[in-house]
Amino acid sequence: MDAVDGNAIGGLLHEVFGSEMTTTVSVCGTCGTARQVGELAVYAHAPGTVVRCPSCDNVLMVFVKIHDRTCVDLMGLAALG
C-alpha cells in the first residue's frame, strides 16, 4: 500500500489537536528519530489512518473515525510538540 506524507492529513490533525500540526516535531518512541509531522508516513487506506515512522516503520499514531467521533492512539510517540 502506498504511503502519503503527514502533510496529507493536516486537516484531520487540525481537527483533533485544534491547530496546524504539520510543522510540529514528533519523536518516535522506538528509534527516537525526530521529524516534522508533515514528513511522517501515512497509510490512509487502512480501516483507520495509520501514521508510521519513516525511519523504523514503528506505528506512531492511529486515528479511527466512528460516526462523529475520532479515536486517537498516540502510544508510539515519545514526544509531540
Binding site: D5, N7, H14, E20, E39
Partner: peptide, 9 residues
C-alpha cells in the same frame, strides 16, 4: 471545503 491546510510543504 475546509482549509487552507498544511505548513510543511
Amino acid at each position: 471545503l475546509r482549509g487552507p491546510i498544511g505548513g510543511y510543504f
